[in-house]
Write a protein that binds this DNA or RNA. Sequence first.
DNA 1: CGATGGATTGAACTGGTTCAAGTGGAGTGG
DNA 2: CCACTCCACTTGAACCAGTTCAATCCATCG
Lengths: 265, 265
Amino acid sequence: MYVFIQGLSKLSMSPYRFSGSKPETSIRLATNNCPYNSACDGCSSRHISLCNVLDTDELKSFSKISTDFHKNAKQVICSEDEDAEYIYNIRSGSVRISKMLSDGRRQITGFLFAGDFFGLSCKDKYSYTAEAITNVEICRFPRTKIIESFREFPALGERVFDMTRTELDSTHDQMLLLGRKNAKEKLCTFLLTMWEKSGRLNEGNGDEVDIPMSRSDIADFLGLTVETISRQFTNLHKLGLIDLDGAHKVFLKDTDALSALAENG
Amino acid sequence: MYVFIQGLSKLSMSPYRFSGSKPETSIRLATNNCPYNSACDGCSSRHISLCNVLDTDELKSFSKISTDFHKNAKQVICSEDEDAEYIYNIRSGSVRISKMLSDGRRQITGFLFAGDFFGLSCKDKYSYTAEAITNVEICRFPRTKIIESFREFPALGERVFDMTRTELDSTHDQMLLLGRKNAKEKLCTFLLTMWEKSGRLNEGNGDEVDIPMSRSDIADFLGLTVETISRQFTNLHKLGLIDLDGAHKVFLKDTDALSALAENG
DNA sequence: CGATGGATTGAACTGGTTCAAGTGGAGTGG
DNA sequence: CCACTCCACTTGAACCAGTTCAATCCATCG
């Protein structure tokens, strides 16, 4: 039996890596048709989904419980304090996960991309809001069904636990960033993480990084203001470390220097 | 079979609560002698440990793999990048979990107390350093043994997964605090969390809260400096919201007002 | 082509830091 | 038992990184 699952862990920008997985729990990218939902004809190696390479019958039972849908940019997918009925998997597009204070101050706790999951690490209520950054295609599963299936397929449960731990690790890194890094260090760290991610997803794109989210999203992710983000972008440009092509495309000209600045800016 | 485990989730100051556990996975406090280690004679209702109310033989096998030890205040229990051989359970005392930047800036990601676990949410290396704040009694188990036992006792694995998710939730709250709250809000939030915790642990102590950690630990937990912490303490005192008895004992005189300040200081 | 909304830039301001000095309590040794 | 030391904590004052407020730029879209 192969458990076929990826994502989730990318929450908070720390991609899950496949090292160390035991054979019987090994994870594979979907290569062609999505096996768990016949309605999905868009599967490619970049569409990483909650596919279970179980036997055909097991697979069919999983297929039946999933629903595909679509959201436009800025639409809410699920919100804080709402009953956590589903877990979600992103087929395409980008999503932000955030929490708010009563007066509207916002902290984005993670950005999610194709293949990522969310909603699993919740209790009965969602503890955060998920919104579409770009147009997104989403697939959702009833949470209880998934959680029940951990007993039947322990490898699935172990995998999800493993990913949750990875995610926890990466939130600790983000706490270090939020609590102790200055604006320049924060932005450099962010750019490098986006770069690593994009390098993995579309190999060979060199040092061109796509930044789907707005300056204000980046600000709320890094605990800064839009203005500071903007100034730091210009700053890094003046230093000759990055080039900008519009607001959503960045060329990293010297990743080594950026790495150095990410810890000692 | 009863799985008998508590703690871990308190990392990042968000105590795990017992609501919603199914009967067969229900968690109980150790009441008297610690069943998993005959060397432990100090068990009380406040010593919450990795005890497994399994049958006697199962229990014995768990007992054999644990080791008790002791650390004095300021001693390191485990450190970043060290091989993650063990998981730890705190019998008594307080522990801080932290990460450092190369130049020595530190972020404390959580404080841990009696009954809490750490080291479980790691891969092959510890991703943080754990140090004793006070003198501590610790109990440790080989990680691999525990993780292997998840297959044999799925309820144990589910429980640990559950606690890890709770912990993840609380790190999101801490990210909101670090990224978006000001100094006064941060300290109020901190005091209230310590208060809730102490209320649970030693009921009936009213609004007196014990603060075992130093000002500098609090600063590194809240992303501030010692001076700011100190000033905010005096500030809250001048506002008549708290009284101070030395540096490590605080009386919360108006928890409602503190709650209000924790979100809109 | 004008309107809209994100992104940038400038200038004043401020919350929290930094640096520096002072305080107090616990431990040590004479 | 007091004097001395040490170290954590507090307090004060200057400073500055990042915010706030305001103006402008620029790309997109009806």
